[in-house]
Design a protein around this nucleic acid. Structure first.
Lengths: 159, 159
DNA sequence: GCCTATGTACTCGGATATCTGCTGTCCGAGTCGGATCGG
DNA sequence: CCGATCCGACTCGGACAGCAGATATCCGAGTACATAGGC
């Protein structure tokens, strides 16, 4: 069970865009060079964040990406869900009904699988913790020097 | 991010073995037929559970698998870790140090990456919830009819 | 001098190859149980 | 009849292919800006 590295990239991009402010559009190439990742591949994840209404994109010469909402409104769960998809990591395939289970009376399966419930409880705790944190919290926790560096990185590339 | 289906299989096998009691060894083929899964593939995960000291295996004609400890001592986290591995789903690759980060003073990276901390907090909540539940809890939550069916499934295959 | 039309360069967006890790399968080493033979 | 020995079949354990999803890359559609021309 490995999470896509796109989640890490997406979160860092959101933090960088929050640092730069709301009115500056940053193209993929600039973000990719800031983290030294493949630009075309990063673009794939930025598109996913646009579809989830986390980022807003603008085309054209001075186009690029910016945050679609205020940082306080973007939770970590939003970003993770946008990139990893909404499905839970554990998926119950109801193997209890197969094999020995085919002889059971249907009423036995009236209540959902206890294993799925237990795993779902852990998944809910995970999502709850992710939903409790926003990009604004990341901004507050990060050292201020990072924001300054990101502005210095962006400035010479803007026109 | 998809969890291996081996986790579901492993948990159902632990539950079945807890139902059958401590002194009956169940071979792979019987467990596989009980859930209608590929026997050789299931064996792979049962081996992982043995390595984690969750199951105990015995060779020979009347050999098979049984629980290595009491069900109260086996947490869901134990089973998940045995099959999925101990690593967290999110892995920080420190991209903050690359690209724009190479110009930063080393002191800026004295404290760990805030994004990794936030994701680690969610991962900790997930593990905490998994560690709080044991196989014995699954036994209590499951309908008693399941245990009876499993015994009926096992009995004609034992000698 | 001002407005409009045009062209260009740059952007995002989706469609396309490659590759690692999960999925599925197989055969060999080891072991227990039972059968056989001898006393 | 009882015990030791041998044989056989069954078990686990690790090593070997196949495939799906993540990784990485590319090119096309669309847009905003700058420029040139006309009024």
């Amino acid at each position: 069970m490995k999470m896509s590295e796109g989640v890490e990239w997406g979160l860092h991009c959101c933090l960088a865009l929050a640092w730069l402010g709301d009115d500056t559009a940053v193209p993929t190439a600039t973000l990719a060079s800031a983290f030294d990742v493949p630009p075309h591949y990063l673009n794939k994840f930025l598109q996913a964040l646009v579809r989830a209404d986390i980022l807003a994109s603008s085309a054209g010469v001075k186009g690029g990406f910016r945050l679609a909402k205020r940082p306080e409104k973007i939770t970590l769960l939003d970003v993770v869900t946008a990139i990893e998809g909404p499905e839970a990591s554990f998926r119950c395939t109801e193997i209890r009904r197969r094999g020995a289970g085919v002889t059971a009376r249907p009423s036995e399966f009236a209540m959902p699988c206890g294993i799925a419930i237990a795993m779902g409880r852990a998944d809910a705790a995970w999502r709850r913790e992710l939903a409790a944190q926003t990009v604004a919290d990341l901004v507050k926790a990060a050292p201020p020097a990072g924001a300054e560096r990101m502005r210095c990185w962006y400035a010479p590339r803007a026109r």
